[in-house]
Simulated assay, not measured.
Amino acid sequence: MTISSRKTVLAGLAIFGTVAMLAACAQAPATTDGTNAAAASDFLPCMVSDEGGFDDQSFNQLGFEGLTAASTELGVTPKTVESAAETDYQSNVQNLVDQGCNLIVTVGFNLAAATVESALANPEVNYAIIDNDADLDFNGKVDAPNIKPILFDTAPAGFMAGYAAAGYSKTAVVGTYGGLQIPPVTIFMDGFADGVAYYNDQNGTSVQTIGWDVASQTGSFTGGFAAGVESLAKAQALIDQNADVLLPVGGPIFLSAIEAIKSSGKDIAMVGVDADLFETNPADSGVFLTSILKDIKLAVSDVVTASGSGTFDATAYVGTLDNEGVGIAPFHDFESKVPASMIDDVDAIKAGIIDGSITVESPASPKQ
Results as ranks from 00 to 15, higher is better:
residue 54 F to Y: 04
residue 55 D to C: 12
residue 55 D to W: 05
residue 56 D to V: 02
residue 61 Q to V: 00
residue 62 L to M: 15
residue 64 F to C: 09
residue 66 G to T: 12
residue 67 L to D: 04
residue 72 T to N: 14
residue 76 V to S: 09
residue 77 T to V: 15
residue 79 K to T: 12
residue 80 T to N: 06
residue 82 E to Q: 13
residue 83 S to T: 05
residue 84 A to S: 15
residue 84 A to L: 14
residue 85 A to K: 13
residue 85 A to T: 15
residue 86 E to D: 14
residue 87 T to Y: 08
residue 91 S to G: 10
residue 94 Q to T: 15
residue 96 L to V: 08
residue 96 L to N: 03
residue 96 L to M: 04
residue 97 V to Y: 06
residue 99 Q to P: 12
residue 99 Q to L: 13
residue 101 C to E: 07
residue 104 I to M: 05
residue 105 V to H: 09
residue 108 G to A: 14
residue 109 F to R: 04
residue 109 F to D: 07
residue 109 F to P: 09
residue 110 N to I: 06
residue 111 L to V: 00
residue 111 L to F: 08
residue 111 L to A: 02
residue 112 A to I: 08
residue 114 A to V: 08
residue 116 V to M: 06
residue 119 A to G: 10
residue 119 A to K: 00
residue 121 A to Q: 13
residue 122 N to I: 11
residue 122 N to W: 05
residue 122 N to Q: 10
residue 123 P to G: 05
residue 123 P to L: 13
residue 125 V to P: 02
residue 126 N to V: 12
residue 128 A to F: 11
residue 130 I to E: 05
residue 131 D to W: 01
residue 131 D to F: 01
residue 131 D to N: 01
residue 131 D to C: 02
residue 132 N to V: 10
residue 135 D to C: 12
residue 135 D to S: 10
residue 136 L to K: 11
residue 136 L to A: 11
residue 138 F to S: 13
residue 141 K to P: 04
residue 141 K to R: 14
residue 142 V to H: 01
residue 142 V to L: 04
residue 143 D to F: 12
residue 146 N to S: 13
residue 147 I to S: 07
residue 147 I to A: 11
residue 147 I to W: 03
residue 148 K to W: 03
residue 148 K to L: 05
residue 148 K to P: 04
residue 152 F to H: 09
residue 153 D to I: 08
residue 153 D to V: 07
residue 154 T to W: 06
residue 154 T to N: 12
residue 156 P to N: 02
residue 157 A to G: 02
residue 158 G to S: 06
residue 163 Y to F: 15
residue 163 Y to T: 10
residue 163 Y to V: 07
residue 164 A to H: 00
residue 165 A to L: 13
residue 167 G to M: 08
residue 168 Y to M: 10
residue 168 Y to P: 02
residue 169 S to T: 13
residue 170 K to P: 03
residue 172 A to W: 00
residue 175 G to A: 12
residue 177 Y to G: 04
residue 177 Y to N: 02
residue 177 Y to T: 00
residue 178 G to A: 01
residue 181 Q to A: 14
residue 181 Q to P: 09
residue 182 I to Q: 07
residue 183 P to H: 05
residue 186 T to Y: 06
residue 191 G to F: 04
residue 191 G to C: 14
residue 194 D to A: 15
residue 194 D to C: 14
